[in-house]
Amino acid sequence: MARRIKEEPSVHRKRIADAAEKLFITYGIEKTTVSMIAESAGYSKATIYVYFENKEEIVAYLVLNSMALLKKEIYEHTSKDSRHKENYYGVCEGIINYKKKYPMYFSLLQDVINVDFSAGKYFESEKDTYIQGEEINNYISELFALGDDAFVVIFTFWASICGILSMADKKTEYIEKQAKVSKKEFVQLELERLYRGFFR
């Protein structure tokens, strides 16, 4: 225990969050308890509450970290020197890679987020997640010079690509039977349709 006392709070928070992440993936967020997280991380339950207010704050911490990973994926696959179509497919590739690597976070990405930080109680990581998300959206807006229509176009794009990827996973057999194409081919066809509608 003496070793841990000397460590920075950020080290403890990361250790706890890493343990929680594994449990969330295995059992789901709802079924994972703080007691389970404490046991897995090697802390007492009381100590968990020293570093996180509750399980919801741990989730918020993990979502913030995942947002940074999404940002990294998108930035690595795009460039302000590239053409629109190259950047469009770069953004799509970044999102697809993110979904493959972090399916739990891809799902959480579509949940309700806190956007009002003027009053009331919120976790600092929620505010940071919002800021990161806006940075991603602003970057996409700049890539395609969207101007005044940026919010509508980007929001609709996110809704569309998330819907396509989620439905392709859930309806693979139906797609193959009705459209006579593989899931991957179907996704590519729909991404091309989106490009023609939004970014060409």
Rank of each mutant, 00 (worst) to 15 (best):
D111C: 06
K101F: 03
N114Q: 15
V115T: 07
L108R: 11
D111W: 11
G94N: 13
I96A: 12
L109P: 01
Y105H: 14
V115R: 08
Y88G: 07
N114A: 08
G90L: 12
V115K: 08
Y105L: 06
I95R: 00
N97I: 15
V115D: 02
Y98P: 02
E93K: 15
C92K: 00
D111R: 14
L109F: 13
Y98E: 03
M104W: 07
F106W: 09
S107P: 00
V115C: 02
I96P: 02
E93S: 10
N97H: 15
D116R: 15
N97V: 12
L108D: 05
V91K: 13
Y89C: 01
Y105M: 07
V91G: 03
C92V: 15
G90A: 11
I95C: 00
N114G: 02
G94H: 13
M104V: 01
P103K: 05
F117L: 07
I95F: 01
K100G: 01
V112E: 14
I113S: 08
P103F: 05
K101C: 03
Y89E: 01
P103Q: 03
G94I: 13
M104F: 11
K99W: 02
N97P: 03
I95Q: 00
C92P: 02
D111L: 08
V91C: 06
I113A: 08
Y105G: 07
Y102D: 06
Y102G: 04
A119K: 14
D111S: 07
F117W: 11
Q110E: 04
Y88M: 10
K101W: 09
I95K: 01
G90V: 15
Q110N: 09
N114R: 15
N114D: 04
V112N: 07
K99A: 11
K99S: 09
E93T: 14
F106N: 03
E93R: 15
K100V: 02
S107H: 00
K99Q: 10
S118Y: 11
G94M: 15
D116H: 12
Q110M: 13
Q110A: 09
I95A: 00
K101A: 09
L109K: 05
G94C: 11
A119T: 13
L109T: 03
Y88S: 05
N114L: 11
D116P: 05
Y102E: 08
E93M: 10
Y89I: 01
N114C: 12
Y105W: 15
D111M: 11
Y98T: 08
I113D: 07
Y102L: 12
S107N: 00
I95V: 15
I113L: 09
V115Y: 06
Y88H: 03
E93Y: 07
E93H: 05
D111A: 11
A119E: 12
I113P: 02
